[in-house]
Design a protein around this nucleic acid. Sequence first.
RNA 1: GCCGCUGUGGUGGAAUGGUAGACACGAGGGACUUAAAAUCCCUUGCCCAUACCUGGGCGUACUGGUUCGAAUCCAGUCAGCGGCACCA
Length: 804
Amino acid sequence: MPAEYEPTSIEAKWQKKWEEAKVFEVDFKKAKNPYYGLVMYPYPSGDKLHVGHWYNFGPADSYYRFQKMHGKDVFTPMGFDAFGLPAENYAIKTGTPPAESTAKNVKTMIRQFKRIGCMYDWSKTLNTSDPEYYRWTQWLFLQMFENELAYKKEGNVNYCPGCKTVLANEQVWEGKCERCDSDVALKPLTQWYFKITNYAQRMLDGLKDLNWPEKTKTMQKNWIGRSAGISLKEKVKDMDIELEVFDTVPQTYLAQTFTIIAPEHPLVSKLVEGTKYEKDVMDLANRVAKKKASGKFDIENEMEGIFTGRYVDNPFGTGDLPIWVASFVVADYGTGIVNCSAHDERDFAFAKKYDIPLKTVMEPEDPEEADKVRNLEYCYSKEPKGVLQDPDEVKGMYWKDAYDPIVKYIKKHGHGKEAVNYRIRDWTVSRQRYWGALIPIVYDPNGKAHPVPDEHLPWLLPTDVEFKPTGTSPIAGSKELKKRVEKIFGKGWTPEVDTMDTFVCSSFYQFRYLAEGNQKEFVTKDIVKKWMPVDMYIGGAEHACMHLIYSRFVTMALKDFGHVSVDEPFQALIHQGIITNDGAKMSKSKGNVVSPDTFIDNYGSDVFRMYLMFMGPFSEGGDWNDTGIKGVSRFAQKVYKIIVQNKKCDQSKSLTTALHIAIKKVTEDIERLHFNTAISALMEFMNVCDKQGGIDEESAKTFTKLLAPLAPHLSEELWELLGGEGFVIEQQWPTFDPKLIKTDTITIAVQVNGKVRGDFSAPVGISEADAIKTAKELPNVAKFIEGDVKKEIYVKGKLVSLVV
RNA sequence: GCCGCUGUGGUGGAAUGGUAGACACGAGGGACUUAAAAUCCCUUGCCCAUACCUGGGCGUACUGGUUCGAAUCCAGUCAGCGGCACCA
């Protein structure tokens, strides 16, 4: 055997052996102790796996290996989020069909994945661009459609007449196209939506039982954005139109003196149609709406509005409310119409700007300040100790106490009812793109949407398309698809040509891994019951309000449709931190991507993965720096040397103690994904061995097991050299004996007035009285305790604290 | 603006109420070597006293507080990062 640890040959050897023995292939039915460990799958780009990938996949794999050694039947799959823009852009540039470049990339990536040495079950991999996969993306769409959770709605999108294409908000610069400078038009486009808002409350309620980072839960909570309040019904004067407004501060609703409506609200044109206000109002509304859509609207400096000439008909018996168009009203929150009062900062500012009359119904207790508020010198809003003046029922009450009474009053007088609004919007799933799952919808000659029947799934992506952007989906140009639709459904029928957002593909993949490619059924119910939810999901925090929301929604919907038995897809979740380079996120465009290749060649996968783990806590990431990798490499060499060359050594008591301390520490640390301290515990143990001149065989075997999740190849090699049976990864994780951790003597520190003045060794069982007595006799302590000792504190086995 | 997180040696970090700086990196000194690499040993938060053994003071972004005792708990301030941002 070689005198030195040579990672390259060892790693290739064990990767081959694992594969041949199918160590990581899971039999869903036979498994007794199922554990589903899932890592967010990557996009198959043509580039090599970078440091960020390794930082994600390496430690995650170590965690799942740790679970496997605890007797769990760990299933950890890997697949590819293969639809999406990069492959399509590459096709536009080179003419290579996306299917071709994607397949090539996937192949390369699998090879790179195997080099990490992760225990993925490759027999159950998936690829979202594979017809056998996207068949189920389409199936999901149809499930949504049949259950009325998918609907089509016209919405405004940015359209550039110069480039003949839809633009993202980021591509619109002050109302103009960033490329050709033409005026961007708001074009109504019909898009497919999933009704995620139906599940807002359920997603909110479900959060509390999830073992997720609090931060992520808070982000989802804010994203869903529940707010409770009242909804008021009002009539437009001289028109047959009823308005509804939402208010979360009902306490001051009687101060409302005007109503505002969003510029892009469809009702605006109806309100002014045929009146002298029409031109001015519509000009402003269109101009502001366009600007808002461009995402460049500055609320501070561009608060704008115009009177519509219309009034709300005396809703509370306090007079008519003029209706204004106001720039800052959000069209798709609540009803897009708001009642305004002097008790809201923004409403107040708007009224001051346009001289709209205001009134107050709440005042501070201080009479002088109350005068100022009544005189509208400043806006007095949402003050817990504001005193209400109107109506009589709440007169004299504090604002903070008046919510319930006023709601009661509002209901009694028929002004409105309680209501809840959510900030989350329905999910737009249409994309005018080629490389995605085609929406399985066809239109009859009258334009009515019909689902593509199940027997025609997968509804294949046509290949006779031009990839160049034209303004609509490239698929619209496919003759094959048109022919296919007419052949199946009849003359005059046309296909939907949009594809689905890739987040639809990833919203259910956790189930499809369990289906093992089954084309007859989405997933087998008893397998779902046995394996779901995912026990530990690991991936980036950037998905907190996207993928992690969508997959929760889809899982809940699938449960309601009767296909799965769980409400939540991911019981536990951890985010790895981000590895930056010089403080900046690594990206190809910045040219600061660090490739792991040279490190793997020089040090091996095990050392590189351990170094990434040793850098700091997994969830915190950090700035990339390779200066420390030598330390981990030295550790690996030392392990190899001590175990391979010096194994003839007697078991010693101090070594056993050190080993059991290590078992305890490593176990606890990996459990909470603190790999960095787990590795230092192993280093400490090795340092003890080093000092003692070796390690005995039994301890070496135990140590090898502790090392197995963190350095999987090296520890297999050591296990074999030590004559262990089977694979080390299939061994039972060692347990520690608390009795062996205890030493005979302990060190007790002595503090005087909170300052450490010395310490002494004592037998473990020393009594409080003896400890204090010994402490006082220490020369350096005696020096400081002349006079009375006022207080004596003894913390068992740790310290004596004396107060003088 | 709102919400959340973070702030510790030259560096990565450890310690979540009990001896701050574990474990590493780097640096300095020494051993081995013709030499270098590798390896091994010693020192390494700052300041002061000391020939030595040691001893003292300061120190976890800043200012206060609670406690016998605070990096850790509380209040406020500052800085950095992340998320949301016209949500009535």
